Simulated assay, not measured.
Amino acid sequence: MEYKDYYKVLGVERTAPQEDIKRAYRKLVRKYHPDVNAGPGADAAEAKFKDVGEAYEVLQDPEKRAAYDQLGANWKEGQAFKPPPDWDEGFEFSGGGYTEADPHDFGSFFDELFARQGKPSPHMGGDRQFSAPGQDSHAKIVISLREAYEGGSRDFNLRAPELDPSGHVVLREHAIRVTIPKGVTSGQHIRVAGKGGAGVGQGKAGDLYLEVVIAEDKAHRVEGRDVFMDLPISPWEAALGAKISLPTPSGEVELTIPKHAQSGKKLRLKGRGIPGKHPGDLYAVIKIVIPPTESVKARDLYEQMAREMDFDPRARLGG
């Protein structure tokens, strides 16, 4: 998808306060509204009208604007754009409302960035005689694979967008201690009661829901509760078989490598994946590592094998 410069669409600076955003939107809506643009230029005006509406949907809402600013600082209009993974880590939001415009009219850029927020519960007024629960908040946290295996607790820094007295969007950082349950997987949510938006009147505060993501690990790949890891072995271990000690996220295990093992073969360790009612499995994926030939002795050994072994690795390719 292509990056859209919403500030350019509305003709305002990135530092513009919210009131300037609103004024620019109202001016452009009147200019490009279909009711005042009949005739040959109607299609172009309608396209502009939709662009203005899409830009306002984001910039009028402090949460969406803060997220957009975080992503868009180094991009230009029309550039190929893809949000980096976990760009919204620690970004706290309560849903972000829509205006009277239909969000389905907007393009893939809008949908890609803000689809997961969805519509919030209706905003409740500030009447002190009225009681209503606060809105729930949402954020994404990234944990290590070890934390997924063992659980535990630690502090996470979250950033909540809000308006300062001058009408500018700022990020308020705050730390929260989270208990991570043993066996949590990517995509699951941890509920922190009472840490969402404040209630109205005597209403209780909303809850905070933390979406869990397991951090990428050079040594491991996670699929659901199953964990995959590369297992480097020597050519002689692959040919003759061996018993080795293998460090895993749940501790060291003894593993038998079968004779004639080939690169890519998966050795399954049942129940050694992420714990749970139905624990996942750990798969050790064999990767044969060829010793270097920097010494004369090593080269002599390879040459001896080439002479004495009747072996053609490409014999099955046909031709």
Rank of each mutant, 00 (worst) to 15 (best):
E252D: 13
L301H: 11
G241V: 08
P165I: 06
R221W: 10
R191I: 08
H220D: 07
V178C: 01
G78Q: 03
S137M: 08
M229Q: 14
G107I: 03
K64R: 15
L210Y: 04
E252Y: 07
G97W: 11
I143W: 12
E173L: 04
V12P: 00
D69Q: 04
P249G: 08
G95E: 05
D226C: 06
A16D: 00
P103H: 02
T256S: 15
I274D: 06
Y3P: 00
V170P: 05
K266M: 10
G201A: 02
V285Q: 09
E211C: 08
G271V: 00
R116Q: 14
A175D: 05
K31Y: 02
R14L: 00
V296Q: 14
I141E: 12
I21D: 03
A16M: 07
Q262V: 12
S234L: 14
R191G: 00
R314K: 05
G95S: 10
R272I: 01
V184K: 04
L255M: 13
A38W: 04
F81L: 03
F49H: 15
K48E: 12
R30D: 08
A175P: 04
G251E: 11
P120E: 04
K243F: 11
Y209V: 09
R268L: 07
E100G: 15
A284L: 03
P120Y: 07
A148H: 06
Q202D: 14
Q60R: 15
S153R: 13
D155F: 02
V178Y: 08
D5M: 02
L171P: 01
G203K: 04
G11V: 02
T179M: 11
E308L: 14
D43M: 12
R14Q: 03
